[in-house]
Amino acid sequence: MRVSTALAAETRQVEGFDAAACLNCGVCTALCPLGYEILPRRLFRLVLLGLEERLAEHVPQIYSCLLCRMCEANCPAGVHIAENIRALRTIVGRRRLS
């Protein structure tokens, strides 16, 4: 498994990207209308750790997020989940992972 420091660094530069505040409690996953286990907390772990190849495997999930904020409205850590996912789309697009 290869770690991309560039991915982690690029993510840190995104204004307001606060996935590091995620407690990994699972409320978001439980409430997600799509029911994808990867959304959003595991995705955040992959990007924060710079696991670019693993992230690339989950590009469809990144783009299928509804951005409905059902998770965000109930996140105990107040993470801006929808905006973080949207920012991931920008990063994925720029790095041509899709």
Binding site: P33, Y63, S64, C65, L66, L67, C68, M70, A73
Partner: peptide
């Protein structure tokens, strides 16, 4: 607490 319509995707 509304549920999404699915439209965004």
């Amino acid at each position: 607490a509304t549920h999404c319509c699915g439209g965004p995707v």
